[in-house]
């Protein structure tokens, strides 16, 4: 297995009085796509937000590229090379698609060739380039959110349930985009409920329950083991397949 780009060791996170993460241990190998599965409320989104510094862990270490980032502020974590696509997408609806992309490109105006590469997967973004992002459809917004995360090369991308409520045709586009990103060497940590989508892309998988990682495996192995799927994921499988 490739060396780890991101490691979480014994991470605890409290939100108000609630103890959400109760000792998460997670390794994300460099260059691969790691899928984080689990029931609703298992702590997947909180794990991503904790990595991003949007919640501060109360205990534990978060190591990214050899550096402890657990105490850093969100902007510093982003600048260290992590991009984040939240579940709610975080689109600036008052800004145009172009302006959204401009903000995502920290180093200067977005690179032309990179944009063309993005447009190849998400042609709608080229079409609606100077429209306010607020008028895009849900799927188009999701494309914009992912495009924003990759407008400049980043070492690690955190993506929270990109397929939620998205049409199957667009999901296929996303599979293409993520596969291409993997080829480019980008590491991806993907929270997903859609097992088909996860199985198509994942290299490794971690399953969460009650604020802990309870199972780690290669994705292919879990995809082949129906008994383990039922045991670990239960009804969520049927509900989301």
């Amino acid at each position: 297995m490739a060396e780890a780009l991101l490691t979480l060791e014994g991470v605890h996170t409290h939100i108000g009085q609630y103890h959400i993460l109760q000792g998460v241990d997670l390794t994300v190998p460099r260059g691969g796509l790691t899928v984080l599965l689990g029931r609703n409320g298992a702590g997947k989104t909180t794990t991503l937000r904790t990595i991003m510094g949007l919640w501060k862990p109360s205990r534990g270490r978060v190591t990214f590229a050899g550096r402890d980032i657990a105490g850093l502020s969100t902007p510093d974590i982003a600048r260290a090379g992590i991009a984040y696509v939240p579940e709610a997408m975080g689109i600036f609806s008052d800004l145009t698609v172009a302006e959204n992309m401009t903000l995502a490109a920290r180093r200067g105006p977005p690179d032309k060739a990179r944009l063309d590469w993005i447009f190849a997967f998400f042609p709608a973004l080229r079409r609606f380039w100077s429209q306010p992002a607020g008028v895009l459809s849900g799927g188009q917004k999701q494309m914009l959110a992912i495009a924003r995360a990759v407008v400049e090369p980043r070492a690690l991308i955190l993506v929270d349930e990109p397929t939620k409520g998205i049409a199957p045709a667009i999901i296929d586009n996303m599979i293409g985009a993520f596969a291409e990103l993997k080829r480019e060497g980008t590491t991806i940590l993907l929270v997903e409920q859609n097992f088909r989508f996860a199985a198509a892309l994942g290299d490794t998988v971690a399953v969460m329950d009650d604020g802990r990682v309870v199972h780690r495996d290669r994705m292919a192995a879990l995809a082949a083991d129906e008994a383990a799927q039922t045991r670990l994921l239960g009804l969520t499988l049927d509900a989301h397949q």
Binding site: L54, P75, A78, P86, G90, L95, L103
Partner: peptide, 11 residues
């Protein structure tokens, strides 16, 4: 509109 996302973009 969304200060948290601005931070997550690195500002």
């Amino acid at each position: 509109e969304n200060g948290e996302m601005v931070e997550a973009l690195g500002y």
